[in-house]
């Protein structure tokens, strides 16, 4: 059974009183545990599709079913809870909360899940150890390098044991070497945690970390197949 099922999805944005299509008649199924890369040039609709899969935006028409739940039927509060328990997000600009320490940033999704303190702290410590940041628990994200921040972001995305991890251009703000190490870490997490990983990139070198590559052009899926 598909973890994600997208049917006849259209998404358009209203710019200067005209509707600009971002996604046109998109259909795709993604199975649990898959590692999928969305590739395409800027404006091809990668981020829009990731936003719809991540339930942080809604389609203009069509249906997005994630883990058996039709996202159109969920109210905002339910959707927030659904995102918190089902998904983890990794952003291009890391998007860590600057007033929270490394530990607190990773801990935050577990606070929303109301995980007991002892278990919460153990899970955060364990995950930060795995991403190599055990020494940086009390640091502010502002005192970390880009690669370290993205590692914190990965830990935050995985700490809630999500079924789905969504990464929008996770290496775009990093140099080549750091980007590779981040991708290796994400692949390792995908294999050990079993969470489905969907990431977008326009860098062919990054796409090789995926098992399945979906190429997008002008808001449509142009090609969908296994990685070479």
């Amino acid at each position: 059974m598909s973890l994600i099922s997208i049917r006849n999805v259209q998404k358009s944005y209203r710019l200067d009183k005209t509707d600009t299509p971002a996604l046109i008649d998109v259909n795709i199924d993604i199975l649990a545990g898959e590692r999928v890369c969305l590739m395409g040039p800027s404006g091809s609709g990668k981020s829009t599709l990731l936003n719809l899969i991540g339930c942080i935006d809604s389609p203009s028409s069509g249906s997005v079913v994630v883990n058996g739940a039709d996202t159109r039927t969920l109210g905002d509060a339910r959707l927030s809870e659904f995102r918190n328990r089902t998904m983890g997000f990794i952003f291009q600009s890391f998007n860590l909360i600057p007033v929270l320490s490394v530990f607190e940033n990773v801990e935050y999704p577990l606070l929303l899940q109301k995980v007991p303190a002892r278990e919460r702290k153990a899970r955060v410590r364990s995950l930060l150890e795995r991403v190599g940041l055990a020494e940086y628990l009390g640091r502010s994200p502002e005192n970390l390098s880009g690669g370290q921040r993205q590692r914190v972001s990965i830990a935050r995305a995985l700490v809630g044991k999500p079924q789905l991890v969504i990464a929008d251009e996770p290496t775009a703000s990093l140099d080549h070497v750091t980007g590779n190490s981040i991708m290796q870490l994400m692949v390792e997490m995908n294999e050990t945690e079993g969470a489905t990983l969907i990431f977008s990139t326009h860098d062919p070198a990054v796409s090789c970390y995926a098992k399945r590559i979906v190429r997008m052009t002008d808001g449509r899926i142009a090609e969908d197949g296994s990685a070479a």
């Binding site: 927030s80 995102r83 998007n95 909360i97 999704p109 929303l112």
Partner: peptide
């Protein structure tokens, strides 16, 4: 704005 977006994405309710 991006901070509010991030908080909401990780599951924080609007309220």
């Amino acid at each position: 704005m991006r901070e509010w977006g991030t908080l909401r994405a990780v599951g924080t309710k609007k309220s």
